[in-house]
Amino acid sequence: MKEEQFDDLWMRAEAGRYARSLMAEYPGWRRRQRRRVAAAAALVVLAGAALPLLNGVLPLGGADGEYLAAHCNKAGIGEDYWVDLAGDLLAESLEV
């Protein structure tokens, strides 16, 4: 079966009417369907993983845009605490 023929079958199967008969008469249908679903899933996962890398250009987080993202090795301390501390330490370092 050529790719164009498969695409045609795919479109028709997507419409729902012929899905069962197509699967029965063409054993490669399930395999190709799985490939397409896996490729779409991989795209979603990659997009999610790439989001942290876009922090430098997209304002993704942070109250009032004071910071883009924050994380800590221990739970229970709010992000604002660290952001305030980073600002306070800079101010204190100039005070004599």
Binding site: G56, L68, C72, I77, E79, L85, A86
Partner: peptide, 22 residues
């Protein structure tokens, strides 16, 4: 014995940000 935090894109002014590790 250490609590470690990272603040990405700490805003210094409208157009400049830095990354901070505490």
């Amino acid at each position: 014995g250490l609590t470690v935090a990272q603040v990405d894109g700490f805003k210094l002014c409208d157009s400049v940000r830095v990354d901070v590790v505490l």
